[in-house]
Design a protein around this nucleic acid. Structure first.
Lengths: 148, 148
DNA sequence: AAAGTAGGTTTCTTTTTGCAACCTGCTATA
DNA sequence: TATAGCAGGTTGCAAAAAGAAACCTACTTT
């Protein structure tokens, strides 16, 4: 149904949202990072309807974020694994989680679920330029217009 | 309408998506970072219906991501500005854009709209731990369970 | 033979969208 | 003074998407 994933828009964020733009897609990807890989487990953990879960998984597979892999043959059973493309989505989810922990939780409540193993601290992140390692803030960014 | 924004879920990403989980919210925030601030301009630039734009702006204002500020008095006209909370959302959008540029555009097509002023390169980012500055990848993260 | 399990699909009802038309307060024009 | 125009919305209605629940399939266990 959802029409061939239009490579139409030239805006990167629009194009991303064509793939993961539905709320559930983010949560499915998050669960996969947490290690939840099976249909049944995802459905129970997320509280999503089977229909929508099925649709989202299929579209994520179509988008090559996930692959459907058999984990046993008799009876045939499958799990969903992240592809390289899917794994590289991790920073987006982490950036979301960092922002959320900073702004949406009161002290004493912190929903910090992740620990950075290198330093043992609850995960809080910042973004740096992969070319110069400098910090990336709105003020240090300018549009790189095409022609219009 | 949309029921009091439940501070219900303990999961940070769920909580974030309660605020910005609708596709349009991301695009509105992106446009605000690009400097598009007025109802009319947003509506035309995004191609969104006025009703939905109005709903999304109101909920973003309610969530304190935006404030509605008069820019002239006669006739009364308003624009939407990012709050500190809203501006801090920037890394999420940038992480999205970086991922999209890496995976969703072919060579020769690159939709890179942003330049990092410090080094003059098209924006590509990576995430580091704000405590130890080490890189953050799924393998270096472990769950920091609460009790359950 | 009956029940259970994983992984879905189908059907139906309720919510959300998106489009178009309308409203308001004010300004500029004829 | 009337008329049109513009920014910033709201209202009403039809179409699309989501959610709940029942059903299906292929095996396994009791």
């Amino acid at each position: 149904m959802s029409s061939e994933s239009s490579a139409s828009s030239l805006d990167p964020i629009t194009r991303l949202l064509d793939i993961t733009g539905e709320r559930w897609s983010f949560l499915i990807l998050r669960d996969l990072f947490y290690g939840v890989r099976r249909f049944d487990a995802l459905q129970k953990h997320l509280g999503i309807s089977k229909k929508v879960l099925s649709q989202r998984l299929n579209s994520l597979v179509e988008a090559e974020m996930l692959i459907r892999v058999p984990y046993q043959e008799r009876p045939p059973r499958f799990e969903y694994q992240l592809t390289a493309k899917g794994r590289d989505f991790f920073p987006v989810l982490v950036a979301m989680q960092s922002w959320s922990n900073r702004w949406l939780f009161s002290e004493g409540e912190q929903g910090a679920l992740l620990i950075h193993s290198d330093c043992g601290q609850p995960l809080d992140t910042k973004l740096i330029c992969s070319h110069c390692e400098g910090s990336v803030t709105p003020a240090r960014i300018r549009p790189g217009k095409r022609e219009q």
